[in-house]
Design a protein around this nucleic acid. Sequence first.
DNA 1: TATGAATGAGGATTCATTCAT
DNA 2: AATGAATGAATCCTCATTCAT
Lengths: 201, 201, 201, 201
Amino acid sequence: MEKTPSRIQKKNQATILAAGLEVFSQYGFRGSTLDQIAETAGLSKPNILYYFASKDAIYVALLSRLLADWMKPVYEINPAGDPVAEILTYAKQKLEMSRLYPAESRLFANEIIQGAPRIMDVLSGELHDTMQSLAKVIEGWIAKGDIRPVHPHHLFFSIWSMTQHYADFDKQVRAVLGDEDPFVGAEAHIEDMIRRLLTPD
Amino acid sequence: MEKTPSRIQKKNQATILAAGLEVFSQYGFRGSTLDQIAETAGLSKPNILYYFASKDAIYVALLSRLLADWMKPVYEINPAGDPVAEILTYAKQKLEMSRLYPAESRLFANEIIQGAPRIMDVLSGELHDTMQSLAKVIEGWIAKGDIRPVHPHHLFFSIWSMTQHYADFDKQVRAVLGDEDPFVGAEAHIEDMIRRLLTPD
Amino acid sequence: MEKTPSRIQKKNQATILAAGLEVFSQYGFRGSTLDQIAETAGLSKPNILYYFASKDAIYVALLSRLLADWMKPVYEINPAGDPVAEILTYAKQKLEMSRLYPAESRLFANEIIQGAPRIMDVLSGELHDTMQSLAKVIEGWIAKGDIRPVHPHHLFFSIWSMTQHYADFDKQVRAVLGDEDPFVGAEAHIEDMIRRLLTPD
Amino acid sequence: MEKTPSRIQKKNQATILAAGLEVFSQYGFRGSTLDQIAETAGLSKPNILYYFASKDAIYVALLSRLLADWMKPVYEINPAGDPVAEILTYAKQKLEMSRLYPAESRLFANEIIQGAPRIMDVLSGELHDTMQSLAKVIEGWIAKGDIRPVHPHHLFFSIWSMTQHYADFDKQVRAVLGDEDPFVGAEAHIEDMIRRLLTPD
DNA sequence: TATGAATGAGGATTCATTCAT
DNA sequence: AATGAATGAATCCTCATTCAT
């Protein structure tokens, strides 16, 4: 009979997750210490462990939350909508997520680069299945001649990679661009790429 | 009075770098241990440190070598060549690097995601300058009407991200694609995207 | 101005002692945690410490109660009774205690094996003196020719060790005996030993 | 291809085991710390862990060695020898072990009292089988009328418990006996008990 | 009386690095 | 050029105890 978390519990758990996100996204799981997280959260180390059983538990909690958020926009693609517009909206949402939640994106990137040890099952399961369904939608649009023939999976890989790049490789992007705002140019460029790719002649 | 490195020295250094690459690219800098590298290299831990002053030194040596390799294809873009072909060739080279040297790509990604603490100066210096020159070439092509107007920097961001994605997010890509070979579809898709983007109507 | 303990107080103290006995006897003092005791008792950890000042206090309370129980049968030996019968009765009582209260026996064994840091004074004081008196009784019986000459102290050591063995080394005893009930054979065997030892030819 | 342990390795491992025995036998597994063992051994804590993978490994190494020593005298009982003499010799050997190696005895007692989590399989396996064979020998002697009818298993339980008592309950024994040497009286008493028990009328 | 929250003091273990040979 | 031995500095986690209510 789990008790409902009290207000102070919720607040501290949220604080810890926020601190964990900040630290983990920057240093990776192994590179992050409970000390860092505790200091960032403004709590003592044992108090952190009072709310989460282990360093790992914090990381997993973050990843779970993240995966849900990360997949959400996919479900909002409307098979009955205008194909190019739907995909553009999706891409813009993803880019906006990179702009607003770069730490989340980097946490996710870190996990996958290191072999996705903790979320491989979600990738092979839910993600795989979702992308299969989505591919059907894309293929339907192609069959109707609404968009040019493209490989559905690779289309999404390119959207994911291009948009997440601005969060994950932020340091490199800004080193190249100097003072220019990355996201202004990014949005225009990505929209251009997708529109040219998909719009039938 | 530096001695010229003997054959055995060179061989061991190479062995250590290869081992370091394998380990660092999988577990990140902090997540990797000298023990792992020593075992992978088949050398004793103190012997590793006989060739490289520290764990950090191995990592930095790898990054330096990597940066050179990573930038090389950029210099091979021929301003006098056919614009679309030049860029396509570049993109294919990058994709081929992701296919052949995924560990290198992941090592690089790891470093940048974590804020590029060790290569920020190279990014702000050499990379920034190189990309400025390259931008001039692209803008020249645009001005001549050889390619459609695109933002040069973002063009390269998209090429980098799309191609490196197949190395860095390999686990996710394969989870989505199942048994399908990622690189076959990737090459076609990326070529399609770039060609549509750049070819003037 | 000590208040008389209320009924609920008494009940909780008893609950805590029962839980402490169960936990301490299995894991030893250092191997037991207040969390375990609290969970076994069905009380919160701070509530445990409301009734007992410390983990140590629970342990000491248990030991004290235990020592009294443990010594009681000795006082019931009747110098005017039949010598062999008196000693047999005592031994059977001790064996019965091993059968009914093995946790208590193990708690006691643990404490003494580890040097009896908390009850050394009781051993050197009350126990020593009691055994001195008892030795006099035994020696009286021997002098009268009622029992064979035996060393009184060692007689009791052998009774204690043989009977407590079935509680303390329960795991080993059952591993050797398999399904056979240890206590049935134990009683016959111990009675046989003592009777043969003490009965004059 | 395990290397043969060098002299220094052997020496340090022996030192650590000796220290571990001293500490574990007094405080139990959970009550002992690597710090204590390290200090007793005169080595640094990480150096301890250079020779043994963990605290647990030291404990298990001790138990293994101990079990072998502990069982050895059983195998020396000669079915063709004089029954009473054989058993008396065995009992005296066990008592001598308690005198010379009380720490080993206490370590063993500690482990069994706490449920024998690490050696249950040896008890149910090798010990059980050995005692079955031994029971056959005893029963043979009984059948021939060489010794009185006794329950073989309980006979050994009583020998084990009486002899080990002088090691395990040393503190209590000495508290009762005062300055008297425990082992002198113990040997006479135990011999008397066994002889009376076994010798046919 | 009772408990959710919090923590200082450990405690086992890891690991980059140094030492001695 | 190589390695067995050794260690100081973390680092994760535990736990008895205290605090606040």
